[in-house]
Amino acid sequence: MTDFANFVAPPASASAAEADAIREASACLDRFTKRFNACDTAGMDGELHFPHVMLSGAERLEWQAPGHHPVDFFEKLKASGWRRTRYQSKDAVLASADKVHFVVTYTREDGAGMVLSTHRNLWIATRAAGRWGISLRSY
């Protein structure tokens, strides 16, 4: 059983392992967004851990397994003028060897690169079974 004191207050020392975790977790976010821009929902699912949690305000959505993106998700997004999503920043605000919390700022752009919207979210990536994946996104 996990010691509760260690669970809620792990050691605060920065380490090479944490720097590696930030780099690897950031690469996971980059792969997710590359697949998002390719409208590849299966590829996006490949960068998530399940169950996958999304928070919007006080509402919580949990996907137990891949395959839950709405079939018309990208059709609706394209109808809004969207053509790509681009990171403005990915700031690691809390990191350990197996978990990184990022404040992610990104824009949705049209085909000419005009910004349609800007979003700032909290995403948490974790390493489970040796693989980095996004476990939680808060919008």
Rank of each mutant, 00 (worst) to 15 (best):
G46S: 10
R108V: 07
H52G: 01
V103D: 08
P66Q: 05
L55S: 06
A79G: 08
D40N: 10
G113N: 07
S117A: 15
Y106T: 00
A112D: 14
A42C: 05
A42W: 12
F73W: 08
H68I: 03
E109Y: 02
Y106H: 13
G57C: 13
A42R: 09
V100W: 09
L94Q: 09
K76D: 04
G43F: 03
L94S: 11
G113D: 08
R60F: 01
A42V: 14
F50C: 00
D45K: 05
R83L: 05
T107R: 06
H52D: 00
D110H: 09
K76L: 09
Q64H: 00
M44P: 01
A58C: 01
K76G: 04
K90M: 10
G81C: 08
S117R: 11
V93P: 05
Q64F: 02
K78L: 12
A97N: 02
H101Q: 03
V103H: 13
L61Y: 13
D72K: 02
F73K: 01
S56K: 01
L94V: 04
E109A: 07
R86S: 04
G43R: 03
G46F: 05
G57N: 07
H68G: 09
P66T: 01
W82N: 06
L116K: 15
S89Q: 07
G57E: 14
R108K: 06
M114D: 15
R84K: 08
A112Q: 14
S56M: 02
W82Y: 15
E62G: 06
D45M: 07
E59N: 06
G113H: 15
Q88F: 06
R86L: 09
W82M: 12
V100G: 08
V53M: 04
R60G: 00
H52R: 09
F74G: 06
G43A: 07
W82E: 00
S96K: 07
P70Q: 03
Q88G: 13
E75R: 08
G43S: 10
P51W: 03
S117G: 14
H68N: 14
L61I: 15
V100S: 06
A58L: 04
G67A: 00
W82L: 11
H52F: 14
R86K: 05
T105W: 04
L116N: 15
G111Q: 12
M44Y: 04
V71D: 15
G67T: 02
E109Q: 15
L116S: 11
P51D: 05
W63K: 14
S89I: 11
D72H: 00
V93F: 09
E47M: 06
M44R: 06
A92M: 12
A92Q: 14
L94P: 01
L61C: 13
K76I: 14
D91K: 13
E47Y: 04
A95Y: 01
L77N: 13
P66R: 11
P51H: 06
R60P: 00
V53E: 03
L116Q: 14
H52I: 02
G111W: 15
A79L: 11
F74L: 07
V100N: 09
L48I: 00
D72I: 02
E62Y: 03
L55C: 07
